[in-house]
Amino acid sequence: MSESRRRSSGRAVVLGASSGVGRAAASRLARDGWSTVLSSRGARDLEAMSADLEARYGGLHETAPIDLLADDDALGAYAGHVTSDGLDVAIITAGAIDADDDGLTDWSTIDRLTTANYTAVIKIAGRFLAHFEQQGCGTLVLFSSIAAAAPRSRNVAYAAAKSALASWATSQQHRLADTEIEVQVYSLGYVDTPMTAGQKLLFPKAKPEFVADRVVQNLGTSHRRGYLPKWWAPIVGTIRALPWTIYKRLRF
């Protein structure tokens, strides 16, 4: 798709808007003149975000609280509400992580992580795509993780769910290849968010604002997938190329 089709304004929903990359993306969109629908679990956080964006940048910034662990009816009602006034872009950063996700954790935790990072996401994303297909255009942005690209003995269910999400996104890209609908999926490296707070990590954390800027710049372009920051690509590539005898000894 040509650069001339890059989106620069419209109506965008950000699911996961109250913190991290979602919050930064909502701010960047508002600064660029987009109307936004801000979604996450906490209504009070969303009200604060909405007021802040209005005060700083003007424009219309609605709130639509949703819990990814809600039942199908609630997820459907949410998607219907968000798309009812038109929607050009959907950015879904919401997800969950659990310090005990070591492959031995209880089923309820695995179920929760799978739902929050995959099942609920594709249920909502699928409805947004249906709306885009109806109107003939739109951009859906999803986030996988380097944990999915190079699985390890930590964040087991999280990595599997993110891997499934990346696979689902690729399938949708293939299905919608000849349309005006874009599905973009990013594999995030370490980002300075509440998920990584206090963790000692091998590589530096990217600022959420850096990630958000790249994501918003790519809206409406033919960008399909990639690592953010980009320098994770050779690192993950190297890890994946390692022989198993070395890989199994890595602690990352």
Partner: peptide, 10 residues
Amino acid sequence: RRHEPASYGH
């Protein structure tokens, strides 16, 4: 021990 809450819930 540092805490960096990002939401009112936290």
